[in-house]
């Protein structure tokens, strides 16, 4: 785990340093009259310092090397992320209801490998439920070329 902790520490350190430089450029101000960058500057500096401590505490060999992702365990989350991003892209074009129906199909087939029968049942049920839910709460959802 230590190797991964060091990677996390370096990433956070870089965010801290970048954040502090950015905050300084926005305007630090003075202690009497703090500028918009005053508070973020101290936070980013503190983040960089804490990450540095975190890095130092994780130096040395790993007594219990840990695999962050067991073999193939990242595949389903990655597929789900791809399905979700396509879903966002489609919402504006196809409308919320239609793209949600597609989300169901894609999720159940690509991520869960469900049978077409299960998919058909759930898409009809889920979409009808969504339609009812949003109608009852009077939520206006984006409409697209379909519904």
């Amino acid at each position: 785990m230590k190797r991964w902790e060091r990677i996390a520490a370096i990433s956070l350190f870089l965010i801290g340093v970048g954040g502090a430089i950015g905050a300084w450029q926005i305007g630090f101000g003075t202690f009497q009259a703090p500028g918009p960058g005053f508070f973020p500057f101290w936070l980013a500096t503190l983040l960089a310092l804490l990450s540095l401590v975190f890095f130092v505490r994780n130096l040395g060999a790993d007594a219990t090397p840990m695999v962050l992702w067991a073999q193939g365990s990242w595949v389903r989350p990655l597929k789900a992320v791809c399905v979700m991003f396509v879903y966002v892209l489609l919402i504006g074009r196809l409308g919320f209801i239609s793209s949600s129906a597609l989300l169901f199909v894609a999720w159940l087939r690509i991520v869960e490998h469900s049978s077409w029968k299960t998919v058909a049942l759930l898409v009809v049920g889920g979409t009808a439920g969504l339609y009812l839910f949003t109608s009852l709460l009077s939520i206006s959802l984006p409409r697209g070329i379909l519904i």
Partner: peptide, 15 residues
């Protein structure tokens, strides 16, 4: 449940 939760979260955030 998973795709249902994704959908409900999306409606919640969008609304």
């Amino acid at each position: 449940m998973a795709p249902l939760i994704v959908m409900i979260c999306s409606i919640g955030v969008y609304s």
